[in-house]
Design a protein around this nucleic acid. Structure first.
Length: 486
RNA sequence: UCCCCGAUAGCUCAAUGGUAGAGCGAGCGGCUGUUAACCGCUAGGUUCAAGGUUCGAGUCCUUGUCGGGGAGCCA
């Protein structure tokens, strides 16, 4: 007898004997002397219907008391279903209850609709619901497809460190990593005659002796693998990272997490246009993969979560992304404002675009993904390459943001400044300590090469694909301010 | 962190400052190759916490906690 997953049983030809295992979703009894028990084992979206006759020895005592959430194992013949709603079912001649639900009244994933807010507080059980099971499978499908996409193109997956002591990643507040005794912090002795060093921004106490800490210096959880992966890029040519990332920002939005996963490819001998092309091809590859591999889950998202979930992806697969210089984006927005479209914040060249501006461009004006490129250098990071031939006062850098309807920024990337003297000038302008970037600068001293890369927020990608509105519902155990229960 | 809204049965929500209710879920029964089943009955409450106003607070006020929407930071 074949032990089958629910997915395998659904695909199998009726006739043979099977053994299946799973958790009860619903039980319906018929006085014709049978019960219908729908079980799910996570292998696919659909449930498998067990038809259980009253002749089974444990029918009265056990089968009739099965409730949502009970785990069981059953054997029987796989047959074509007599009812509507499923093609095959299992005519059970043995059913063994593996685990009972001790109190069906309070079982948090009971057979009724629950809000996502409530289920978030039951994160250990919410994956037993239709929605979160589907999210989990789509998330896995996308992760596998990302590795496949890069592997097929000769990219090397680089495991950049989670812990970093460099403090020069420059992408927001960081979580400190320390083994120092917080109740008894070692202090540096001020040098005689010299005042204590001034506290640095984001560093409350300046006289803590991090020399005694585990790494001998201040250390943090990474906010980006980019700087590290650039080093591997400048040797292996095509690389990417895919791992967790941490931001200690006090962000309370449906698009931010304190711990999230990010994909950061980096390509050598490449410019910003190559970068944008890579981003576009990658997204298209991923959308195609999820439609092919998870049609069951995507159908659910389309029916119950977001009616555009599938058509949106189809549309993108067929059509090239729009590429637009920041300057032209500003002109479009200003024209719209003049024509009567009201924005809370004014649009002005040189200022970063607000969420409402990005959304207008991608959701209203173009109604499709837009790659905005060449942003003013003043609003972008030090490592982004200064564009050649800029008008005075209108210097831009080779940055790009991929904006998509509903989410906004899903990808941020740039061509990196490969010219040492320009990089140094930028470090000086932004008052950054060149010495701290010594190994990053070395890349520009020894065989420098134009290169570019981007960061794709994995959870934002899942949001876009599934139509799930809150980012906390597309990661198994969300980490956000005041939220780390599980 | 800022602005707005919210917290009442297991869940989703009602309740003019005056006896806390419904739907779903759950339990029991009826009916049925059922499948968002249907019909009947039953149980189920420290109204988020602390303080205040009042003869009387789920309701009004203050503070706090947590949640949601929006903004900022970004992916």
């Amino acid at each position: 007898m074949a032990l089958m997953s629910v997915a395998e049983a659904m695909r199998a030809k009726p006739g043979g004997r099977v053994k299946v295992r799973g958790w009860v979703r619903t039980r319906r009894d018929s006085k014709a002397g049978i019960s219908f028990v729908a079980i799910n084992d996570g292998s696919c979206f659909d449930n498998l219907q067990l038809v259980v006759p009253k002749e089974l020895a444990n029918y009265e005592k056990e089968v009739l008391h099965l409730t949502t959430g009970c785990s069981l194992e059953a054997e029987g013949e796989l047959v074509a279903s007599q009812g509507q709603g499923q093609s095959v079912e299992v005519k059970a001649d043995r059913l063994t209850v593996v685990g009972w639900v001790e109190d069906p009244e309070t079982y948090p994933a009971s057979a009724k609709r629950h809000t996502f807010e409530y289920l978030r507080e039951q994160a250990h059980l919410r994956v037993r619901t239709n929605t979160f099971g589907a999210v989990a499978r789509v998330r896995n499908c996308l992760a596998q497809a990302i590795h496949r996409f890069f592997h097929e193109r000769g990219f090397v997956w680089v495991h950049t460190p989670i812990i970093t002591a460099s403090d020069c990643e420059g992408a927001g507040a960081m979580f400190r990593v320390s083994t120092l005794d917080m109740m008894n912090l070692p202090r540096t002795r001020p040098e005689p005659g010299k005042p204590a060093p001034a506290p640095r921004p984001g560093h409350p106490a300046s006289d803590i002796d991090y020399g005694q800490d585990f790494f001998g210096k201040e250390s943090f959880l990474t906010v980006s693998g980019q700087l590290n992966v650039e080093t591997y890029c400048c040797a292996l040519s095509k690389v990417y990272t895919f791992g967790p990332t941490f931001r200690a920002e006090n962000s309370n939005t449906s698009r931010h997490l304190a711990e999230f996963w990010m994909i950061e490819p980096e390509i050598a001998f490449a410019d910003i246009n190559d970068d944008a092309t890579l981003a576009e091809e990658m997204l298209r590859y991923l959308f195609r993969a999820v439609l092919e591999e998870r049609p069951d889950d995507m159908k659910f998202f389309e029916e119950r979560i977001d009616k555009d979930a599938v058509t949106r992806l189809r549309h993108i697969i067929d059509k090239p992304f729009l590429r637009l210089p920041y300057t032209e984006g500003v002109e479009i927005l200003q024209k719209a404002a003049k024509a009567g479209r009201t924005f809370e914040f004014p649009v002005e060249w040189g200022k970063d675009l607000q969420s409402e501006h990005e959304r207008y461009l991608t959701e209203e004006h173009f109604k499709q993904p837009v790659i905005l490129m060449h942003y003013p250098k003043a609003i972008k990071a030090f490592y982004m390459r200064l564009d050649d031939g800029c008008a005075p006062g209108r210097e831009t850098v080779a940055a790009m943001d991929v904006l998509v309807p509903g989410i906004g920024e899903i990808i941020g990337g740039s061509q990196r400044e490969e010219r040492l003297e320009r990089l140094d000038r930028r470090l000086d302008e932004m008052k950054l300590d060149k010495a701290a970037y010594w190994w990053y600068r070395d890349l520009r001293r020894y065989g420098t090469v134009p290169h570019a890369g981007f960061g794709l927020g994995f959870e934002r990608l899942i949001q876009f694909v599934t139509g799930m509105q809150n980012i906390r519902d597309v990661i198994p155990f969300p980490r956000a301010p005041k939220q780390a229960e599980f």
